[in-house]
Amino acid sequence: MSVPVHPEDKRMGIGVDPGKLLLFLGVLLVVVTVISLMVGRLRIPPGQIITILASRVYPFKQTWTPTLESVLFDVRIPRLLAGILVGAGLSVSGASFQGLFRNPLVSPHILGVSAGAGLGAALAILFFGNFAAVQLLSFVFGLLAVLMTYGLSTVYRTTPVLMLVLSGMIVGALFSAATSLLKYIADPVNNMPSIVFWLLGSLNNASNKDLLVVGPIIVIGTVVLLFIRWRINLLSMGEEDARALGVDTGRIRATIILCATMISAASVSIGGIIGWIGLVIPHIGRLLVGPDNKVLLPVATLVGAIYLVTVDVIARTAMETEIPIGILTALVGAPIFAYLLRKNRSGW
């Protein structure tokens, strides 16, 4: 499969009508959403859940405990929404980055956002020890890292895309090393395990308050990326070709990086570092609909949301204790990726 594939080539994928596929994925998302609300460590009868949900619209007589209501509205729904947002956001960022860098091995973390966020979280755990600080600092440091990457890449006047990747590696290595240093000097009894544990990722701490702040960032980033998806096609033809067509590649690149970074930093601040989604989901999308970003991006968005919500259901119900979701996404993602590489008929 070394023949370059034109992004507009409609023959790739499994050959289903994209409209029908999107409809199917939409229905599937609704199904996993309902399942996600119904299951959990606490067994609540489905009828009761429906009644509690409906009570927000119709004033039913309250026959349930406030705890059940809280479980639904303060825990399950925020966690479900966080799963949808983070899954969709990371997948659409991953797909956009893979288009931008014209490289299928790129994930949204390539520019150092997770390394930066990790350092921010470690600092917050060491100096504040409360969760709000962890979220704020991980977000700020995630952005800071990408800003540094971007700044560094403009210092060298060569192929911008290559310089971005290299700068991302440098900045990522720097921030990771700083995090390791903090872990080394941190109190090994409580703080260090907290840092390591946070880095494994979890949606267990998602709350309505977080979603109000972070949700809009992810939604706006995702919508913008979806809106400019046809321009990503132009970029993936190559810098020169795109410029020859009169496309302002620098501006599109900056827009993609800004959106993907805001999404990833926001995702990390809710759920820690959840790997493999942004890398694997776009490939699943390509397997389904081929490499055309116009179709691929919406498909990846939906598949990502479905995937993360499903994995999170496993993370919170499979054992009596929480399974860090980063472990699961890697456990599931890596074999899928291996399989996709072997298949490799999706083109790219």
Binding site: L42, T67, V71, R79, P193, V196, F197, N204
Partner: peptide, 23 residues
């Protein structure tokens, strides 16, 4: 049961689901 070593946590510690604690 949480005794034993868990990835990323000190031996004997484990994370609970928020809803479990509410329950």
């Amino acid at each position: 049961s949480t005794a034993g070593v868990k990835e990323g946590l000190h031996s004997g510690l484990s994370e609970m689901s928020m809803e479990q604690v509410l329950g």
